[in-house]
Computed example of a mutant assay.
Amino acid sequence: MVFLFLRVTLERIMGPGNHSSVTEFILAGLTEQPQLQLPLFLLFLGIYVVTVVGNLGMITLIGLSSHLHTPMYYFLINLSFIDLCHSTVITPKMLMNFVTEKNIISYPECVTQLYFFLIFAIAECHMLAVMAYDRYVAICNPLLYNITMSYHICFFLTMGVYILGIIGSTVHTGFLLRLLFCKNKVVNHYFCDLFPLLELSCSSIYVNELLVIVLSAFNILTPALAILASYIFIISSILHIRSTEGRTKAFSTCSSHISAVAIFYGSATFMYLQPSSVSSMDQGKVSSVFYTIVVPMLNPLIYIMSYQSFDSLRYIMY
Rank of each mutant, 00 (worst) to 15 (best):
C110T: 07
S230C: 09
L198W: 06
T158H: 05
T222H: 08
M317W: 12
L84M: 12
R314Q: 12
G29I: 07
S21G: 14
C85Y: 02
V187M: 10
I302W: 07
I77E: 09
Y48F: 15
L157R: 06
A123I: 02
S255T: 11
F25G: 01
H69V: 02
A268I: 03
L239K: 15
F181H: 01
V130L: 05
F264I: 03
V278L: 13
S87N: 07
L157N: 02
V50C: 09
I241H: 06
S256V: 10
R135F: 10
N184L: 08
I104D: 13
L313N: 03
T70F: 11
C154T: 09
I119R: 02
R7I: 12
Y265C: 05
L4A: 14
G160H: 00
L301Q: 09
N299Y: 13
L30E: 10
I13A: 14
V99H: 11
S256R: 14
S288P: 06
T112R: 04
S277M: 10
Y318P: 04
G168F: 00
S169H: 00
I263A: 05
P296W: 02
R12Q: 12
M271K: 06
C192V: 08
Q35P: 04
H152I: 13
G266F: 04
R135V: 08
K185E: 11
K185G: 02
F44K: 06
S309K: 14
I26M: 07
R12F: 14
S169Y: 00
S169M: 00
Y133Q: 08
I235P: 05
F25I: 03
L210W: 09
H257T: 10
I205K: 05
V130T: 04
P71W: 05
I234T: 04
Y145N: 13
T170V: 01
F218W: 06
T170K: 00
V130W: 01
V286N: 12
Y291I: 04
L27V: 08
G46H: 09
S243N: 12
V171Q: 02
A262F: 08
R247L: 14
Y272A: 02
T269H: 06
Y272C: 01
